[in-house]
Structures are given as C-alpha cells and as structure tokens.
Amino acid sequence: MKMKTAAVHVIVIFALVLLAGCLFIPDDTPWPTDVRTRLVSDGEKDTGAKNLVSAIYLAYRAFDTLGETIVLIVAIIGTMSVVESVKKISDDPTTAVTYDFSLVKEKRSSHKLRTHLLEVVTGKIGPVVLLFGFYVMGQGHISPGGGFQGGTIIASGIMLFILGNPYSKVTEMRQNKILSTIEASAFVLFILVSLLSILTSGIFFSNPLEAAGVKYEYYIIALNALIGLKVGSGISLMCIAMMSRRRT
C-alpha cells in the first residue's frame, strides 16, 4: 500500500514536471508584437485613453469585462448565501443580534492595547486610502489605474474604516444596505450603458453619445467609475458579511 502511494506520488510529480516544462519554458518563437504595433498607432485615436490597458479592457474587449462583472456578482451572491447559512448553524437565533468586528478573540492582557492601537491607526488611514481609491478609479484613462484597481483599493479602505470602529451595530446595518444598493445600481447602469449604444449606433459597447459630440474619453471615465463602484461595493459587502457575526 505504501509502495503504491509512493509510486503515485512519483508519477504525478513526473507528469507535473512535464506539464510545467511544456507550459512554462518558452521556445524560440518570439512574443508577437502585432497587438502592440496596432495599439501604438491607433489606440489613443480610437479610445482617447493614454493608458492602453484601460483602452483594452474598456473598449476593445469590453465584452470580457461585462462577463467578468457577472462572474463577480455570482461569486458574491454564492459566498453571502453560504455565510448566512454558516451563521444560522453556529448561532442561537433567540439571542439578541449584535455585531462584532474585532479580529482578535483570545483574552490576553495586551488585547485591549492592541485593539485600541488598531482602531486609532485604521481609523486615521481609512479615509486616505478611500480617497486614493477614488483617485485611482477616476484617473484610469491617463495614469495607471482604472475600475478594478480602484475598486479593490476602495474595498480595502472600507475594511479599514470598519476595523476602526468595531462596535457600531447601526453603522453596519446601514452600510450593508447602502453598499448593496450601490452595487446593484452600478451593475444595472453598466448593462444599460452597454445596451444604449445598440439603440444609438447599432454596436454593442460603443460610445452612445458620439453623435452629440461627447468624446470617447468621457465614456471610458464613466465605465471606469461604474466598474469601480461595483467591484468596491461588492467585495466590501462580501467582507462585511463575513466579518460581522452574531455574538451569543
């Protein structure tokens, strides 16, 4: 039995080495440069974005981004429903509902000091991180950044806020409601914007107000803001649902 297990291990490692050799070791074929040539000559003219990464995921491959936001929302729905059922199993529903955001559970003498340190520091850093997230989100077309990057930074900022004031039951409830509203409306607006262009220009995911003289740049800014709000509120909603628990 032991011999057999060792043989299985050796075979799997051998197969993995072969697989990694095929996948990871490049041959002499040079990396293709056609995409780069095309983007350098036409990218800014087509989309108005200096940051070509934004130009790709919001203009050339915007359909990908739509699919990814759908994957994100499905994952968040699944996670939150599983988390709710976890709460139901582990807690007695008759006790009063209070929320506790502190990460440390054990009762040691330095607990109090550590929690105060955590609260003060995160409470001061949180707004700055949030502001930086909005900056990254809004400047995505001319500097590194964009919807996904800004959204994850916003989620981190909201997490820092929540770690900063751990005992506020009311804040948690209200934030939950606000965040889910933001996420749902951003998603609906994203789909509406992408569908609107079918009516005006007949092409999915193109600038709907091009005839009215609005530049493509502003369309990219709007899409960046929508994606950023959606990603940030969705991820922070998921984290809030995980970190809040019913204290028995």
Binding site: N51, V53, S54, V86, S90, L103, K105, V136, P144, G145, G146, F148, Q149, T152, I153, A155, S156, M159, I235, M238, C239, M242, M243, R245
Partner: peptide
C-alpha cells in the same frame, strides 16, 4: 505592469488576508 501591481497589492494584502482570517476565526 503597474495596473496589475496595484490590483495585486490591494487584493493580496487586504482582501484575501481578511477573508482567510475570518475563516480561521470560525
């Protein structure tokens, strides 16, 4: 790859750690 670096730093150091610590706490 600055865009990827921003995302990886925010996700890896912030969100993933929080989720893991939540799971370990439970």
């Amino acid at each position: 790859a600055f865009d990827v670096a921003i995302t990886e730093a925010a996700v890896g150091a912030g969100v993933t750690t929080i989720i893991f610590v939540w799971a370990l706490k439970h």
